[in-house]
């Protein structure tokens, strides 16, 4: 815990996260990576693409690939509802990419000392989160964007 104490001194700056729901859990996505949030729209399937890519959408004239986070994390397949949203991430390495979430809940500011490192419980499995934040009683897993996007073959 000593390093967290150090961080505490070093910076108290709060980072904003978009809190989303996938399955029963809540996840946070750092706002700096987010370009845009759009409602569900028709997704065109791309044959032979990796399973977790649902396809591509037309985002105001641009073709943007869309990934299912549920498929990526090995959960049950998506059920699209009125609450479903596509969060468009803008990444330097690959440009725009959309991820599908069940629901967007709120924007939350968390400082680094609100976030604890992820538990080592599920070792061996690729982890998509790099910390767990607390908001009152609720736990919010913070996504590690690079591990979601990276290793398409994994």
């Amino acid at each position: 815990m000593s390093d967290i104490a150090m961080l505490d001194v070093a910076e108290k700056e709060k980072v904003q996260y978009i809190v989303v729901k996938i399955g029963g859990e809540q996840y946070g996505i750092g706002i700096s990576n987010i370009d845009n949030i759009v409602r569900m729209c028709p997704i065109a399937r791309v044959a032979k693409a990796p399973f977790h890519y649902r396809g591509v959408i037309n985002l105001r004239g641009e073709v943007v690939p869309v990934m299912s986070l549920r498929r990526r994390m090995g959960l049950e397949d998506d059920v699209f509802t009125d609450a479903s949203r596509i969060i468009i991430l803008k990444l330097e390495s690959i440009g725009l990419i959309g991820v599908i979430v069940d629901e967007v809940k709120e924007v939350l500011s968390l400082s680094d000392d609100d976030i604890e490192p992820p538990t080592q419980a599920n070792k061996g499995k690729t982890s998509f989160i790099n910390g767990v934040g607390t908001n009152g009683d609720e736990l919010i897993s913070i996504f590690e964007i690079s591990s979601i996007i990276g290793d398409v073959d994994a």
Binding site: V46, A47, K48, V56, P65, M67, L96, I97, I149
Partner: peptide, 11 residues
């Protein structure tokens, strides 16, 4: 198709 899908063989 974007960087993450452009290694597609038939599209």
């Amino acid at each position: 198709l974007g960087k993450c899908l452009d290694n597609n063989k038939i599209i």
